[in-house]
Amino acid sequence: CSVCSEPIMPEPGRDETVRVVALDKNFHMKCYKCEDCGKPLSIEADDNGCFPLDGHVLCRKCHTARA
């Protein structure tokens, strides 16, 4: 995971895991958050999703503030 540096592995008792890929980086679902404010990001293409800027994973509000 690009945030916590832990491997993305299935939880005990499970055969599969879910990971998020954004900007060629891999994330646990729980680690997929705005780099500035820490708001959890949605994997859907909506207002709560990722608004990347200069290689950073940001929420819409933080993207607008940086732009």
Rank of each mutant, 00 (worst) to 15 (best):
C1Y: 01
C1Q: 02
C1K: 04
C1P: 00
S2P: 04
S2I: 02
V3K: 10
S5L: 13
S5Y: 07
S5K: 12
S5G: 06
E6A: 12
E6D: 11
P7H: 04
P7M: 14
P7F: 07
P7R: 11
I8D: 00
I8Y: 02
I8V: 03
I8G: 02
I8T: 05
I8K: 03
I8S: 02
M9T: 07
M9V: 12
M9N: 15
M9L: 08
M9P: 07
P10Q: 14
P10D: 14
P10Y: 12
P10G: 15
E11D: 06
E11S: 13
E11M: 09
P12D: 15
P12C: 15
G13E: 10
G13Y: 04
G13N: 04
R14T: 05
R14D: 13
D15N: 08
D15I: 08
D15F: 05
E16I: 02
E16L: 02
E16C: 04
E16P: 06
E16F: 02
T17I: 10
T17N: 08
T17H: 09
T17Q: 04
V18D: 15
V18C: 14
V18A: 15
R19I: 02
V20Y: 01
V20I: 11
V20K: 08
V20T: 03
V21R: 14
V21P: 13
V21H: 15
A22G: 12
A22C: 08
A22S: 14
L23D: 09
L23W: 05
L23P: 04
D24K: 11
D24V: 01
D24M: 06
K25T: 05
K25S: 05
K25F: 01
K25E: 03
K25M: 11
K25I: 02
N26P: 06
N26L: 08
N26M: 12
N26H: 12
N26S: 15
N26R: 09
F27Y: 10
F27Q: 03
H28F: 00
H28T: 01
M29L: 12
M29G: 12
M29D: 10
K30A: 09
K30D: 08
K30T: 12
C31A: 01
C31K: 01
C31S: 01
Y32L: 11
Y32H: 02
Y32M: 04
K33N: 15
K33Q: 10
K33A: 08
K33F: 06
C34E: 00
C34M: 04
C34I: 06
E35Q: 08
E35C: 00
D36P: 05
D36Y: 04
D36Q: 09
D36W: 06
C37I: 01
C37M: 01
C37H: 00
C37Q: 01
C37L: 00
C37R: 01
G38K: 13
G38M: 13
G38D: 12
G38A: 11
K39Y: 09
K39E: 11
K39G: 11
K39T: 12
L41Q: 03
L41Y: 03
L41T: 01
L41P: 11
L41A: 02
L41I: 05
S42L: 03
S42W: 02
S42R: 06
I43P: 15
I43D: 12
I43H: 10
I43F: 06
I43N: 15
E44D: 07
E44N: 12
E44V: 05
E44F: 02
E44I: 03
E44H: 15
E44S: 08
E44C: 06
A45C: 13
A45W: 04
A45E: 09
A45T: 10
A45V: 11
A45D: 11
D47H: 09
D47A: 09
D47N: 14
N48H: 11
N48F: 07
G49K: 14
G49I: 11
C50W: 04
C50N: 14
F51L: 09
F51I: 08
F51C: 05
P52Q: 13
P52H: 11
L53N: 11
L53M: 12
L53I: 11
L53F: 10
L53R: 10
D54L: 07
D54V: 03
G55K: 13
G55D: 15
G55Y: 03
H56T: 07
H56Q: 12
V57R: 07
C59L: 00
C59M: 00
R60V: 13
R60H: 09
K61D: 13
K61S: 11
C62L: 00
C62I: 02
C62W: 00
H63G: 14
H63C: 10
H63Q: 15
T64S: 13
T64W: 07
T64K: 11
T64M: 14
A65L: 12
A65D: 14
A65V: 14
R66D: 04
A67L: 01
